[in-house]
């Protein structure tokens, strides 16, 4: 099985071919509550995470709320 290299929150990360947005969110976030993801600059709705596969060189941002403002 080949691996892909995607950029997650600015850092390169190897993921197995076929990995989805949901897989990577689960790997980087302690909990999916209060988390949102953007793939190549577009929001991916939570309901679509599992059905959205990653491709080589994709840029995934995984954000949550922190103290601010």
């Amino acid at each position: 099985m080949t691996a892909l290299t995607v950029v997650v929150n600015g850092a390169p990360r190897e993921v197995p071919a076929g990995a989805s947005v949901a897989d990577v969110v689960a790997a980087v976030a302690a909990s999916a509550a209060g988390v949102a993801a953007a793939l190549n600059g577009e929001v991916v709705r939570r309901a679509d995470w599992a059905a959205t596969p990653l491709r080589d060189a994709d840029r995934l941002e995984v954000l949550t709320a922190v103290q601010g403002g």
């Binding site: 600015g10 980087v28 209060g34 709320a65 922190v66 103290q67 403002g69």
Partner: peptide, 17 residues
């Protein structure tokens, strides 16, 4: 009350939320 949106920090303890 306002919050900011930032990249998740896997080491973060507790949440403002």
């Amino acid at each position: 009350t306002t919050v900011a949106m930032r990249r998740v920090d896997p080491a973060a303890r507790g949440s403002v939320l």
